[in-house]
Design a protein around this nucleic acid. Structure first.
Length: 437
RNA sequence: GCGGCCAUAGCUCAGUUGGUUAGAGCACAAGAUUGUGGAUCUUGGGGUCGCGGGUUCAAGUCCCGUUGGCCGCCCCA
């Protein structure tokens, strides 16, 4: 038994685990790149103040924070948003618009562990800066959906719930609530799904009994699950700001429908996300079966860049966490078995054949193929077994007969067929095999 | 920060009212096997029974503490 343990909530990645992680990251990276997003990275350790400025002093309890040897208060990053706001804010005037950035990075939160949540985790973050129009939301929601679909997940597996804090704000103001009451009410709306009417208790405690008309209006609004229902509720509420928001909603939903993504997106005003800094559309992705925590979440945060010391710059972003997402892939059987499989596994007779095989092994590797072979002399039966277990598509056989003829056999391990080719043609044959798919 | 359950081999677990030298399957390794597939058989390596203390003639087993894990609450950027 090892004397030292990993710190609670931290993870170690043995090769198989890292292969799975890399598989996920590779796909996210490729998808983001196809959507025209550029990758960035930044320090893991940041001034504690960066997070306090965004989230308030209470946040410190959830951080890995300490004082460094220079007396600086620092924290391991618990999220990317403040960091990316600083990066963008610092060069806002020099960056080409639109600013479409993404990152894949590790984060740390001092929290109790639970299913799908640890003290360290990775997130894919994607953000668009400088675009006030809802085309930014369209682009990001499409990216979010494709980041999940790229693994074979479908609309049977997950969906994105779309809501709008602006709409809520305007609606509650039209009901006569002032800003402190609106904020308290949004908090109640956020908790209503879980606690029912008990979610209003904090509001009642702070502001007194809840007007029944207001309550029924809020419950009605909270139950809106479609554009048609939204239009109907707002029809009785003439307000120019609400009408403008409704036009944005139509644009977003029409665009996503045009992309063929309508089946992934559901209007759901019951989602508001607790975070006070969101200023417009907010969205969260969930497992359809619903036994996992949220897969991803995001929204518009138009004031945050300025609040963190940058220029006024509208922004929208979302993040996907690796833990819940990997759980979902495993549950759906979508995590491939062979990720690090070689293309070619060599079967080698004896010392003489090994000397001959080295040339082709290296030539294939130099040509870009993943090639493996046994380091020690091993019985043929075992080598074929090892070849099959490795997940290789081809076995390259160097027996004494073949080597004597200046040839090698290429065995298709799936079809169980073999062809003998002159050794100088091995690379070309392997290339043909893989380019033919 | 709070509550419930749990801890025996790399993994999944068995282990009798407390009783001799702690077991199985899987995995790993060697052989059967000197040229063709995830098989079979044989054999092998692997354990401070999480850690510390207590009760006892005797503790993997009972008690206390501690550390870690799972699940839930709070929180979830």
């Amino acid at each position: 038994m090892a004397t030292f343990q990993t710190l609670p909530g931290f993870r170690e990645f043995y090769p198989e685990d890292l292969a799975r992680r890399n598989h996920v990251f590779r796909s996210w990276r490729q998808t983001a790149s196809r959507f025209g997003f550029s990758e960035y990275d930044a320090p893991v350790l940041e001034p504690l103040e960066l997070y306090k400025a965004k989230s308030g002093d209470e946040i410190e309890g959830q951080l890995f924070s300490f004082t460094d040897k220079g007396g600086r208060e620092v924290a391991l990053r618990p999220e990317m948003t403040p960091t990316v706001c600083r990066l963008v804010g610092a060069r806002a005037n020099a960056l080409k618009r639109p600013i479409k950035w993404f990152s894949i990075a590790e984060f740390f939160r001092y929290e109790r562990m639970q299913k799908g949540r640890g003290r360290c985790f990775y997130q894919f973050n994607a953000d668009i800066f400088g675009e006030p129009g809802c085309e930014a939301e369209i682009e990001l929601i499409a990216l979010l959906v494709q980041c999940l679909c790229a693994f074979g997940l479908t609309e049977q597996d997950f969906y994105v719930r779309l809501s709008d804090r602006n709409l809520w704000f305007y609606y509650l103001e039209s009901l006569g609530l002032d800003e402190p009451r609106v904020r308290a009410m949004l908090s109640a709306v956020d908790r209503h799904e879980k606690y029912g009417d008990a979610a209003f208790e904090p509001y009642i405690k702070e502001f007194g009994p809840l007007d029944e008309t207001v309550k029924s209006r809020v419950l009605g609004f909270l139950g809106v699950k479609s554009l048609a229902a939204l239009e109907q509720v707002l029809a009785s509420q003439p307000d120019s700001r609400l009408a403008a928001r409704l036009a944005d909603w139509r644009r977003v939903l029409e665009a996503l429908d045009a992309m063929g993504l309508a089946g992934y997106v559901e209007v759901d005003l019951g989602v508001v996300r607790g975070l006070a800094y969101y200023t417009g559309f907010v969205f969260e992705a969930f497992d359809r079966k619903g036994d996992l925590r949220a897969l991803a979440g995001g929204g518009r945060y138009d004031d945050l860049v300025q609040k963190l010391g940058g220029p006024a710059l509208p922004a929208v972003g979302f993040a996907i966490g690796d833990m819940t997402f990997s759980l979902l892939l495993e549950q759906r059987g979508l995590m491939p078995k062979y990720i690090d499989a070689p293309d070619v596994y060599c079967v080698i007779g004896g010392a003489n054949e090994r000397r001959a095989a080295y040339r082709e092994i290296h030539a294939l590797r130099a040509a870009g193929f993943r090639v493996d072979y046994p380091l020690r002399e091993t019985a043929f039966g075992k080598q074929f077994k090892a070849a099959a277990e490795s997940g290789a598509k081809l076995a390259l056989i160097f027996g004494s007969d073949e080597v004597a003829r200046g040839a090698a056999k290429i065995r298709d391990l799936t079809q169980r067929t073999e062809t003998e080719v002159p050794r100088e043609q091995v690379v070309a044959h392997v290339r043909d095999f893989f380019s033919a798919g």
